[in-house]
Amino acid sequence: MNYFHFPLEDWTNSFVNNWLLPVMGGFFNSISEVLGAFIEAVTNLLIVVPPEVIALILIVLSWRIAGKGMALFTLIGCVYLGSVELWPAAMQTVAIVLVSTLLSVLIGVPVGILTATSSVVDKIVRPILDFMQTLPSFVYLIPAILLFGLGGVPAVISTFIFATPPAVRMTSLGIKQVPEDVVEASRAFGTTKWQLLFKVQLPLALSTIMAGVNQTIMLALSMAVIASMIGAPGLGSTVLSGISTVNVGLGLTGGLGIVVLAIILDRITQGLGKRF
């Protein structure tokens, strides 16, 4: 099958070494600094606040949104994280999840709106989303380190790449699902495009968009271990050190912590989505 040689590897490397790093390096550095500072601020906030306060907030949220049973689970989960001495690690993971989710929503929702309203944008964005979801994450971990160094920033960027597609897709779906007759009636009364978006389409798409955000959070959590390979602190790095030292107990302890976080965040955001 090799009729000719396709030097994708050489081209990519020379693109990265000769242009991306020397020319764009400064640009990526400044992104890295801003994002790094933001992640640090969120992490510090979560660690400075006493665990009891955060646990209480989570329990009350679970209780109000997902019911008594879930509140009990949240209580047990928080006590577990504290008693295996993983509370700070859990908060580091939560910080990365929060920042990357925020980034995913800020970019994903507007893109989703655009794909729902323009078939051209939809045609361009769709293959990009496929790429983001299926390209093995290790492939972009390497350039992420090159461009953003080690630590939380490349972790957030890789998590963003992996976790944004559902936000885009569900936003687009939600807006397309708004009944045509409602849109038509709104137009008949003299609704402008922006009014249509903010008074009709977004409110009616909100529960679907929230389902997308929920998926984004879940995917972000599932990236925790992989992100720890490029130096992201948190529960992922606990699991990773369990793996590298063949310490099954440590791996399970950290892994369970991720599961606990996932269940709490999932039920809360899912419950929120159903409220709309």
Partner: peptide, 21 residues
């Protein structure tokens, strides 16, 4: 056009087209 729709043309639809929220 939007002004005319607002000030001159009311419309009632077979499927109602009410805003469910």
């Amino acid at each position: 056009l939007i002004e005319t729709r607002r000030k001159k043309l009311g419309m009632v639809f077979q499927k109602f087209g009410l805003l469910p929220h």
